[in-house]
């Protein structure tokens, strides 16, 4: 009972921090602050995933969300201006749509099975086979790894191909541009042409 209360207190405080950070992101016009706040948002999300025992997801969220994407946001920011141009006006229509979708989602959670329930539909279909197979056939203690790398090997191969494509795409789009610019500057005598 005591640990249950602690869990609820931790959940409530993390959720409150998450909401405060989100409001901060919305209200800030300064893009540096927004980038740092979204890093903080990811870090709090990672803590929430830990409380849900999803350590692998928390790991990824902390490394990618709080680490790399914050740095990439800052890197992208140095290529543009540092603050938003105009304060966004209050639009009634989008707010109503958001509220309606949010209400529908909360209504949808009413019929969801309780957290950790073994009766949940997701645990009925093929998961028992994976759990038994990881224990007996693959003998890998981390079931997440055995599902990702073995049972869902094709998915992971596809995901790796997606990452590969993303990296190649960014590299070709903006990676080599600067050297070409420098060569262009050497070639073209009239600077007006480049504008």
């Amino acid at each position: 009972m005591g640990s249950g209360l602690v869990n609820v207190a931790v959940d409530i405080s993390l959720m409150t921090l998450l909401a405060v950070t989100a409001i901060g992101i919305i209200r800030s016009r300064h893009l540096f602050a927004t980038a740092m706040l979204s890093g903080i948002y990811s870090l709090i999300s990672a803590a929430l995933f830990v409380t849900l025992d999803a350590v692998d997801v928390a790991f990824t969220e902390a490394a990618v969300g709080a680490g790399i994407s914050t740095v990439l946001m800052l890197g992208a920011m140095t290529l543009t201006r540092r603050s938003e141009k105009h304060a966004v006006k209050l639009h009634i229509g989008p707010i109503l749509v958001c509220l309606a979708v949010g209400a529908a989602l909360i209504y949808g959670t009413v019929e969801m099975p309780p957290f950790g329930s073994t009766e949940a539909a997701g645990f009925k279909h093929i998961v028992p086979e994976y759990i038994a197979g990881s224990r007996d056939d693959i003998q890998v203690p981390n079931i997440v790894t055995s599902i990702l790398a073995s049972y869902r090997g094709f998915d992971t191969l596809g995901e790796t191909a997606v990452i590969f494509t993303a990296g190649i795409g960014v590299w070709f789009l903006i990676g080599r541009r600067r050297r070409e610019d420098e060569e262009d500057e050497k070639k073209t005598e009239t600077p007006g042409d480049r504008a």
Partner: peptide, 9 residues
């Protein structure tokens, strides 16, 4: 690669 691509610019 992505970091170098951004930072190199």
């Amino acid at each position: 690669a992505i970091f170098f691509a951004y930072a190199g610019r």
